[in-house]
Design a protein around this nucleic acid. Structure first.
Lengths: 95, 95
DNA sequence: CCATTTGTTCGATACTCATCTAAACGTCGA
DNA sequence: TCGACGTTTAGATGAGTATCGAACAAATGG
C-alpha cells in the first residue's frame, strides 16, 4: 500500500476542492513553498481576495485533507499533504 | 510526450466535471464498459435520474473531453477518453 | 402512417457556494 | 493593559448549476 486509502466521501471532497480554480492556485502555491510552509498572509498577497475568502478556501482544502494546518502562535503553517493528493490521483486512475 | 496537453480552461472543466459525484459514477460506468461503449439508456437504468438530467451530465462530460460521443442511429456510443483523463492526472501530479 | 424508443431542449425551481463587509477573536509587543 | 496584526466567523448577496416535468425531434418497427 504505497498511498493512503480514501473514503468515497473524501474523494468527493477533494474533487470539489480541486474544482475551484482559485483553490487550485492556492494549493499550487502551498505546494511550491515545500519544506518551509507558507503563511496565510503570503498567499493573500498573491491571491486577490479578502482575508475572509482566503480563510474559507483554506478551510475547504484542510477539510479535504489536501493541506495540513499548524498554528504557530499568531501565524499558520500550511503544507501540502502529498500522500492524500497521491491517493486521490490513484483513485482517479482506477477509472 | 506520452499524454496530450490540456489548456488551463480544459483542466478547469475536467475538475468541475469530476466534482459532481453523479458524474463520477457515470464516468466510471462508461469506463467499465470499455471496448463496447455504453448506451445512454443503460446508464439511465443504473443512475436514478431522469433522461433530461442524464443528458445534461453527459454533455458536461463530453464538453470536458472526458467522454467521446458517437451517434449510432437512434443510440449513443459513449466511451471514456483515457488520454484526456491521463493528461488531467498528469497535470495534477505537477502540484 | 402511426406508435414506440432514444435522446434533447426549455423553463422553472431549489440548492450550493464564492465572495464581500463588518465584526469578533487570539496572540504578541510595548 | 492597550493596540496592532493575523485570522476567523456571521450574515448577505449573487452566480452557477443540478434537477425535474413537459414538449420536442429523430430513428425504428409494425
Amino acid at each position: 500500500m504505497p498511498t493512503a486509502k480514501l473514503t468515497a466521501r473524501q474523494v468527493e471532497m477533494i474533487a470539489k476542492a480541486l474544482a475551484e480554480p482559485r483553490r487550485m492556485d492556492i494549493l499550487r502555491q502551498i505546494g511550491a513553498c515545500d519544506g518551509s510552509a507558507a503563511s496565510c498572509s503570503a498567499l493573500q498577497e498573491a491571491q486577490k481576495v479578502t482575508p475572509a475568502t482566503l480563510s474559507h478556501h483554506i478551510k475547504e482544502l484542510a477539510n479535504a485533507g489536501l493541506v495540513d494546518v499548524a498554528r504557530e502562535g499568531k501565524f499558520m503553517r500550511l503544507s501540502l499533504n502529498r500522500p492524500v493528493l497521491d491517493a486521490y490521483l490513484k483513485s482517479l486512475s482506477t477509472i
